[in-house]
Design a binder for these strands. Structure first.
Length: 242
DNA sequence: ACATTAATTATGT
DNA sequence: ACATAATTAATGT
């Protein structure tokens, strides 16, 4: 149930793991080697926490494989999902926003592989590695932007539109094409979707059932396939550009 | 226009 | 067999 202990890779990690990822794509082979040799790789079981809200931020991570959801818990024990992180992105980058503790909990949505570095290396990364700072601040900006629009949706849109919008974002960021349509690439429950959109799992269930009858989506346990993204867009209340 | 409650059924280990 | 997930209807705000 819990994750494996952190360890130095007993075999050298291959440089190709990082060369195509935006924060590192401007670096030469030698620099990537340095970075990999400083990293600790770690495997996380699905459902296990990678780090906890409020804990001292000791490391920042790169998600090599798998999907992660970032979650906050309210006083009353209810969960709210802040966002999902697809493979290839940084997470736990508390130092980037001037924090010493993690602002939220990161849970592996699937089995996940991370690379981790001590936060004290952050300043070195920022000044030694060309493009690292600008790229990471770009992703921070994107995430803030996404959370921002979700706040707007929560305040103004109806449940149906919020769910449609969330599903559309999920297939944009983590969609995988199948013969049936575009599938959300990690397991997601009605409960998850309700925690993402501020509603109940019952309402999500009813809506998905209705959409399924109309051929908009096809869903099974912990799985959602979008068959008609365009129709979902129409439901989402997005303004068609004139 | 939604939540809540509750009962029932399906699905994966 | 058991826990988790999903459906459905009825009722409440």
């Amino acid at each position: 149930m819990s994750s494996q202990p952190a360890r130095k890779p007993q075999f050298r990690l291959d440089e190709s793991l990082l060369t195509d990822l935006p924060p590192f794509s401007r670096l030469d082979r030698r620099q990537i080697r340095e970075i990999l040799d400083l990293a600790v790789s770690r495997r996380h079981d699905a459902g296990s926490a990678i780090f906890d809200e409020g804990a001292q931020a000791e490391r920042f991570y790169l998600l090599l494989d798998g999907h992660v959801r970032v979650v906050r818990i309210t006083e009353t024990g209810e969960q709210v999902i802040a966002l999902h992180i697809p493979p290839g992105q940084l997470l736990g980058i508390a130092p980037a926003i001037g924090r010493e503790t993690y602002p939220a909990t990161a849970v592996a949505a699937t089995e996940a592989i991370t690379l981790g570095w001590p936060v004290r290396l952050w300043p070195d990364f920022v000044c030694d590695y060309d493009g690292f700072a600008t790229e990471t601040y770009k992703t921070v900006g994107k995430r803030i932007g996404e959370m921002n629009t979700r706040i707007m949706e929560l305040a103004t849109q109806q449940v149906e539109q919020r769910i449609a919008n969330s599903i559309l974002r999920l297939i944009n960021q983590s969609g995988r094409k199948t013969d049936e349509g575009i599938e959300i690439a990690f397991p997601i429950t009605r409960q998850d979707l309700s925690e993402l959109t501020g509603t109940t799992l019952h309402t999500v269930s009813r809506l998905l059932s209705a959409w399924e009858k109309q051929g908009l989506v096809k869903s099974a346990r912990r799985k959602i396939v979008v068959r008609d993204a365009h129709a979902l867009m129409l439901l989402s209340g997005a303004q068609p550009r004139h």
